[in-house]
Amino acid sequence: MTETAEAAGRTRRIRWAAGSAVALALLFAGAATVAAARDGGAEHHVSAPAPQVPAADSADAGFARDMAVHHQQAVEMSFIVRDRTDDEDVRRLAYDIANTQANQRGMLLGWLDLWELPKAAAGQEPMAWMSAGRHAGHDMAGMPGMDAGYEPHDGSLMPGMATRTELEQLRGAHGEQAEILYLQLMTDHHRGGVDMARGCADLCTVKVEKRLARGMVEGQQSELEAMAGMLAERGAAPRPGKVS
Rank of each mutant, 00 (worst) to 15 (best):
A25S: 07
A64P: 01
A32E: 07
A64M: 05
V53L: 08
V75G: 02
H70P: 01
G40K: 13
G40E: 15
S20R: 10
R12Y: 14
T4C: 09
G62F: 04
A48I: 08
A36M: 10
Q72P: 02
A31M: 15
P54H: 05
A37H: 12
V22A: 14
A61P: 04
A59N: 02
A35Q: 07
R12I: 15
D39Y: 05
V75I: 04
I14V: 15
F63C: 06
V53D: 03
P49H: 05
R38C: 11
R10I: 13
P54S: 11
S58V: 08
A18I: 07
L26S: 14
R12N: 15
S47I: 08
T11C: 15
A17T: 10
E43C: 10
A21G: 14
P49E: 04
D57F: 06
R13K: 15
R65W: 03
A68I: 02
A5P: 05
A7D: 07
A32D: 09
A61H: 02
L27N: 15
E76Q: 06
Q52S: 14
A5V: 10
A68T: 00
A5E: 11
A74K: 00
V53A: 06
P49F: 03
Q52K: 12
D57H: 05
A25P: 00
A61Q: 01
G40Y: 13
A7N: 10
A42W: 08
R13V: 11
D60T: 09
R10N: 07
R38D: 11
A56F: 05
A61R: 00
D66H: 06
T4H: 12
A55Q: 09
T11F: 15
Q72T: 13
A5R: 14
A59Y: 01
A5N: 12
P49Y: 05
A8V: 12
V46C: 11
P54D: 01
G19W: 07
A68D: 01
G41T: 06
A74L: 00
A35W: 04
L24F: 12
G41P: 09
R10T: 10
A21Y: 04
A29P: 01
D60S: 12
T33Y: 13
D60M: 15
T4S: 14
V22G: 07
L24D: 05
P51T: 02
E76C: 07
G41S: 11
A35V: 07
G40T: 14
R38L: 09
E6K: 12
A37T: 13
R13C: 05
V53P: 03
P51D: 02
A64Y: 00
E76M: 14
G41A: 14
V53K: 05
A17E: 04
A56W: 02
A8Y: 08
R15G: 06
R13M: 10
G62I: 03
Q73A: 08
A29V: 14
S20A: 13
G62W: 01
H70I: 11
A8W: 07
A56Q: 07
A32Q: 05
A59W: 00
A35F: 03
T11K: 15
A35M: 08
R38M: 07
A42S: 15
V46N: 09
Q52P: 07
T11Q: 15
R13P: 04
I14Q: 11
L24Q: 10
Q52I: 05
V34W: 09
L27F: 15
G30C: 14
A59K: 01
Q52F: 06
D60A: 14
A74V: 00
E76H: 10
P49I: 02
Q72E: 08
A74R: 00
T4W: 04
Q52E: 09
L27P: 03
